[in-house]
Design a protein around this nucleic acid. Structure first.
Lengths: 198, 198, 198, 198
DNA sequence: CATGAATGAGTATTCATTCAT
DNA sequence: TATGAATGAATACTCATTCAT
């Protein structure tokens, strides 16, 4: 029984997502050069050939992963900025959320680990190094700015502070993803990066 | 016989060191899988064959680099612990020294960048993941302990705090090594990881 | 799934055999060190990569060849020993069969040529040097023993005579495999190694 | 104190001979491709560079070895032909001499082992395959011819019988050179290749 | 002359990509 | 479509030869 075009598209879309999802974890753990297509396919549970039906080559697969990740991270934060709430609470919310993500090795944690890897791969056009243009950096910058006016956040260039905050979050994600035991990680550590002691 | 045995040994030792030194930078920038022997040899300015006179294979070269780096990092810190000085000053000294190292892209900065990479390479016996046994982690733990008694350092497990401090330092090194522009980096950021606000 | 598992296994087995078969000739002609993988692959008519799907490396390929050959040689002879027939006839049968094999450059001839090479390669576990344990040596020893009782075979240690007989057969095979012209070779020469003149 | 030209030449000649002598053994044991210059030099007890003072390259060294060997083997046999003595005695003398050479692993034994190797290396211009032109083959042919007239030697083409006799001698040499234990080897075996039973 | 460290052409091996089934 | 065996370009490693000392 031939399927309708829509059904067909849907099935394709599902497979593509399955590949992307699984690849994130594998790339995050092994890096770009360290990821071998044969092993990746085995890890996903498909034949190598199948990968090439959905993605032109290894690089395209990787690029699509990065795109997917970046778009996912951004939504929540952008909304948080607009909410009426004091900066301190926003920062605490973000930190809690990040610690949660990292501890659960969520897809966002993998995305952070991968971002660190991107710093290392020479591919010139990686998102993380151009971080000032990143939406999370921008969003946090706005929150920091608000917090400095409210007196809860330490002094300093808000852009750089934001960048620094995210760097730390990324590292902690990387370390947790790559170590077998669950690494300790305190919400307070993250908060203190930006918030003054009382 | 053209040279005495001593001279000969000396020359060999020099070459080995030259290879190690240059390889650190290359591996730190490109990672293990990303480092190709042909390119590495060209970067060092020697033939590929020469590498194999001094190191059995790529992996051994990498391992020897890690050994060398770890032994280098440890000396200064061990001594600092023994000095009579309040903990706060010690931490400030360490932070200043680390910021300096990172900004100047010193060999220690490269060593940190490489250590982060080691977390990623599966090679079971990497130093950084077994960080509680590392001398820098131990040394800083002692200083933190002292600081908590003196009231200058925030509460928390000294081992984990030390581990966290070094994680941040490592990432900042990695980011600075791998980005072309000089990344901003404030001594105060590092200090606040451990020290209470006044 | 394009093929059943059984078909797949069968195809793989065929390819492995094709590689083994062709490699025997190539190794026999060129020796271990003299055989270059690129040329061997071209000779077989496959890509170099394909070789590495079936064999971990050059040495494993060579070892598997030797295993295959040794098992092949042994069957016919073992049976001959059990047959009711006077020793002289058995020896004449063996000699005729060997001359035939060598003249036709059969797979057995290649196996002999390779065996001589094995004597030379240092690899400790070669079959030919441990020849007293070889089935052909043992089988012929039994025939010689029988012949000495029947009075048709010359005096001497049956083991050593057997070993000597096979040495000659091996060399003649080697020489014929490696020379372009067909070398002369008389059945009578082989017979007289063991059989008394009438 | 500068030496006279003659002394200088003499020293050079001595070194060249030392290299040739030692190389024979090494090549005989390891073959052409299997012989690595670095190891050969170590075996001889000189630097690799020194080899290249006396021989243009590996191949020339090998060729010179073969030349040296062939000229050495030939003298004794040529003379034997001319001696007044019945063929049977001559053959027995040769066989005894060969057995002796092989058992003692004399230079001639090495030369035989090397000759077998030459059959295997593709180099088109090897002496052993063009054996009908070899002096030992020719010399023995004459002795066989004489023996056939005297009735002591079996029937058959004297050239081919001679060739066959030497093939056997060569193999036995090869096997003895390459095995650690001393292989058994009976003079009578060699004699019976050519001589009729009484 | 003698040396052995340095070299790079040559070889073994890996891995992204293709393609017949 | 999905597969995984086959491929060969890219990469790690070896070894004959050179050359500064």
């Amino acid at each position: 029984m031939p399927k309708t075009k829509e059904q067909c598209e849907e099935i394709k879309e599902k497979m593509k997502n399955r590949i992307l999802e699984s690849s994130i974890e594998y790339f995050a753990k092994n890096g770009y050069s360290g990821t071998k297509i044969t092993q990746l396919a085995k890890y996903i549970g498909i034949g190598q050939g199948t990968l090439y039906i959905y993605f032109a080559n290894k690089e395209e697969l990787f690029t699509e992963i990065m795109k997917k990740l970046n778009s996912q991270n951004e939504n929540g934060l952008e909304n948080l900025v607009k909410v009426k709430m004091d900066s301190e609470s926003k920062i605490k919310l973000i930190s809690e959320s990040m610690v949660e993500n990292i501890k659960n090795k969520s897809i966002i944690a993998y995305s952070f680990a991968l971002n660190i890897r991107m710093v290392q791969e020479q591919s010139a056009d990686n998102q993380f190094t151009r971080s000032y243009e990143n939406i999370p950096v921008k969003a946090l910058r706005d929150i920091i700015l608000q917090g400095q006016q409210e007196g809860s956040v330490i002094e300093g260039d808000p852009y750089k502070l934001s960048d620094y905050y995210w760097s730390v979050v990324h590292t902690l994600a990387l370390i947790n993803i790559n170590s077998n035991e669950n690494q300790t990680l305190e919400v307070n550590w993250l908060n203190r990066i930006l918030l003054k002691d009382k």
